[in-house]
Deep mutational scan, measured.
Amino acid sequence: ERVRARYDYEAQNEDELSFKKGDIITVLEKDDGWWKGRNGKEGLFPSNYVEELE
């Protein structure tokens, strides 16, 4: 599954994923509120910062 970033997100910890608004992220795992994904790097990000691609 792929999602698009709705906002910029700056990683707060080294296991998190940074991205810019409009970036496409491949979702690897979904957990409550935090998803694991890849966009060149791999890490956790808040699920409310992304939207599913149509």
Rank of each mutant, 00 (worst) to 15 (best):
26 T>W: 13
12 Q>S: 09
52 E>V: 13
44 L>A: 07
36 K>P: 00
7 Y>D: 10
48 N>Y: 13
48 N>Q: 14
7 Y>M: 13
16 E>H: 09
28 L>M: 09
47 S>L: 05
38 R>W: 15
14 E>T: 09
40 G>T: 11
19 F>D: 00
14 E>S: 11
26 T>F: 11
37 G>M: 02
28 L>D: 03
23 D>Q: 07
36 K>F: 15
25 I>C: 05
37 G>D: 01
11 A>V: 01
8 D>V: 00
17 L>H: 00
38 R>S: 13
14 E>D: 14
8 D>Y: 00
32 D>Y: 09
51 E>Y: 08
7 Y>L: 12
52 E>Q: 14
23 D>S: 07
49 Y>S: 08
44 L>T: 10
31 D>W: 15
47 S>Q: 09
3 V>K: 05
1 E>S: 10
37 G>F: 00
37 G>W: 00
28 L>R: 02
52 E>C: 11
4 R>K: 12
48 N>R: 12
14 E>M: 09
9 Y>R: 05
42 E>R: 04
51 E>R: 05
54 E>N: 13
44 L>K: 13
48 N>W: 15
30 K>W: 06
47 S>H: 09
13 N>E: 08
45 F>K: 02
42 E>H: 06
41 K>M: 08
16 E>K: 00
42 E>F: 09
15 D>V: 09
28 L>N: 03
4 R>W: 09
48 N>P: 06
34 W>D: 01
30 K>P: 01
51 E>M: 10
46 P>E: 02
18 S>R: 02
48 N>F: 12
23 D>E: 10
2 R>H: 12
27 V>D: 01
11 A>Q: 06
35 W>N: 03
32 D>K: 13
36 K>Y: 14
50 V>N: 01
47 S>M: 09
30 K>R: 11
25 I>N: 02
9 Y>Q: 01
48 N>I: 13
6 R>F: 07
3 V>R: 06
14 E>H: 10
21 K>Q: 10
28 L>K: 03
51 E>P: 02
35 W>C: 05
20 K>F: 10
26 T>L: 13
48 N>L: 12
1 E>M: 14
39 N>W: 08
24 I>N: 01
11 A>I: 03
9 Y>I: 01
18 S>V: 02
18 S>N: 07
21 K>E: 10
15 D>Y: 15
21 K>P: 01
12 Q>Y: 05
2 R>W: 13
9 Y>K: 03
12 Q>T: 11
33 G>Q: 12
2 R>P: 06
29 E>V: 11
21 K>F: 05
4 R>A: 08
22 G>Q: 03
46 P>Q: 07
46 P>L: 07
43 G>I: 00
54 E>P: 13
19 F>C: 00
15 D>F: 15
2 R>F: 14
30 K>C: 06
45 F>Y: 00
50 V>A: 07
7 Y>E: 11
54 E>V: 13
2 R>S: 10
13 N>R: 11
28 L>C: 07
35 W>G: 02
39 N>G: 08
48 N>M: 12
5 A>R: 00
34 W>V: 08
3 V>T: 04
16 E>N: 03
48 N>V: 11
26 T>N: 07
21 K>D: 03
49 Y>M: 12
1 E>F: 14
10 E>W: 12
39 N>P: 00
8 D>Q: 05
1 E>K: 14
50 V>H: 04
47 S>V: 11
22 G>R: 00
22 G>A: 02
19 F>V: 00
40 G>Y: 09
39 N>E: 04
19 F>H: 01
28 L>I: 13
44 L>N: 08
11 A>D: 01
36 K>T: 08
24 I>L: 09
3 V>I: 04
28 L>W: 05
32 D>H: 11
2 R>N: 11
19 F>K: 02
10 E>F: 14
6 R>K: 15
11 A>H: 01
6 R>W: 06
53 L>Q: 06
53 L>N: 06
49 Y>K: 07
5 A>Y: 03
54 E>W: 14
2 R>E: 14
16 E>S: 03
1 E>A: 10
51 E>W: 07
48 N>D: 13
27 V>Y: 03
53 L>E: 08
19 F>A: 01
25 I>T: 00
52 E>K: 12
12 Q>D: 06
25 I>R: 02
19 F>R: 00
41 K>A: 11
15 D>Q: 13
40 G>M: 08
22 G>V: 02
45 F>I: 05
32 D>N: 15
34 W>Q: 05
2 R>C: 15
47 S>D: 06
31 D>Q: 15
21 K>A: 13
50 V>R: 04
47 S>P: 15
15 D>G: 15
8 D>K: 03
50 V>L: 03
49 Y>T: 07
1 E>G: 10
42 E>D: 10
19 F>L: 07
